[in-house]
Design a protein around this nucleic acid. Structure first.
Lengths: 250, 250
DNA sequence: TCAAAAGTGTTTCTCATACACCCATGT
DNA sequence: ACATGGGTGTATGAGAAACACTTTTGA
């Protein structure tokens, strides 16, 4: 912190909050948990869940607490990481407020607990929430954009994609996570190879699960590895190119 | 922000600061800019430069301002990015203080301006500053560790390494940045190929610079590219293996 | 027995590694 | 001329992309 004494700057009171970008994959689309504001400002508008940090609480602890309060889920079973700090002077009309945004990634979750908070929590497709005119409260549109971008890049070089899956899961389910978050189709067999060849990415359980039609799929659990080397690049790599016109001669 | 009304939590006043991890490469080692604290707490101990955010100032603006005040350098010519927020309740004995740390990377800089601040600023080798018993003020040891780690990984998949070089620079100088930050020797010819084949990483100026003995090196400027795909991995790739004992027969 | 999904094998090609070798300059 | 660093060329091998093919189930 290191203050700079004897100059026009000095400590002034600000409110400290945490906000949560909670993402999950459901119905083949990336969803974010939004609540409806129950009081001004931005009354009735959708917003990210969050709240004030308590006087004797660390930022991470506040994020875990808010996560449980809003979703009923244990912050230790989800992936939770600090995203970014936001402190524009006018971001809250009530007064100077600095927020630390957190990114949470989890499997398709039970219907969100009707928050002790005013408005009920709702899963919203990210594409809808980011559409122009949707109107998130405060600067939450920008925060959501940053969170989604972080999630996309983190899939490349970490194993967090498994956080979106309920254990045990199949490799098709894991691949679907990548396809939904990146918005790209991947080649199933090459994806399988990369995942199973990376030590600690997934661990087979030995069990299988029947699918409606088709061969039962082997089940896996999350492995110990967190970093992914080499990374699973989404650009120019592993993309199953759609059926384009084949070259001239048959 | 989204307060949670009618519950034991609510806004309480906290001080808001920014701290800077300013790194540079000089004398074949990574250095960090530290100031000496001129007043309690932690009087006389080294600390990261930083200060209070002003009442009508954004976090980024505060970081740029502090950077100029402490180094005399323009925040727009250096690489500057938000690092992480730190808000442990007891991190400052004077009261609740939440800080947002920023990471700045720049070329070997002019001797730091004797800060308007109390203690003079000093370049310190990162290895010394992180050694047990060096004793940085507050939680600045942890912040510095996080900053160095961020710098190491960012060299892999972005072009920020060029921020450490004074333009124009040679490819040997750029390679030296990687070697110093990663602590690994790299193969000069393969490094050259990767850098020059990545569009927008560096742009040749057409000029050359004489070296003491040896062929003059071509000079380059930073390119437009910020992301580096494919990344320049530091693990198991491009490492020039040191002279180990050769196989049995000569 | 057919459709659908899981899973394996294989060819082709790209790119990184390792290292030999040539170039340009100061002493 | 020779030592020193800059810079180019290339043989080898690992791994990715593309896709044909086999396996296992439900209807």
């Amino acid at each position: 912190m290191t203050e700079t004494p004897d100059r026009p700057s000095g400590p002034f009171p600000a409110a400290v909050t945490v906000d949560l970008v909670i993402l999950t994959v459901r119905a083949e689309a990336l969803h974010v948990l939004l609540i409806e504001r129950g009081k001004p400002p931005y009354l009735g508008l959708p917003a990210l869940p969050g709240g004030y940090v308590r006087p004797h609480e660390d930022l991470d602890a506040a994020a875990i607490r808010e996560l449980r309060e809003e979703t009923g889920l244990d912050g230790h079973t989800l992936h939770l990481e600090q995203l970014h700090g936001y402190g524009a002077p006018d971001r809250d009309p009530r007064g100077r407020t600095v927020t630390t945004a957190y990114l949470a990634l989890g499997p398709d979750m039970p219907a969100p607990v009707a928050g002790t908070d005013a408005g009920a929590a709702r899963w919203t497709p990210v594409n809808d929430a980011l559409a122009a005119g949707f109107g998130l409260a405060f600067d939450h549109g920008g925060i959501l954009t940053d969170g989604v971008e972080r999630a996309r890049t983190k899939l490349e070089y970490t194993t967090v994609a498994t956080s979106f899956c309920t254990e045990p899961f199949t490799l098709s389910e894991l691949r679907s996570v990548y396809e939904v978050v990146w918005g790209l189709p991947l080649d199933p067999s090459n994806f399988r190879r990369k995942v199973t060849r990376t030590a600690g990415f997934v661990e087979p359980t030995g069990e299988r699960r029947a699918t409606d039609p088709g061969r039962p799929a082997a089940l896996y659990r999350r492995g110990d590895a967190r970093e992914l080397v080499p990374p699973l690049l989404r650009s120019s790599s592993d993309v199953h190119r759609p059926a384009t016109a084949p070259p001239a001669h048959p």
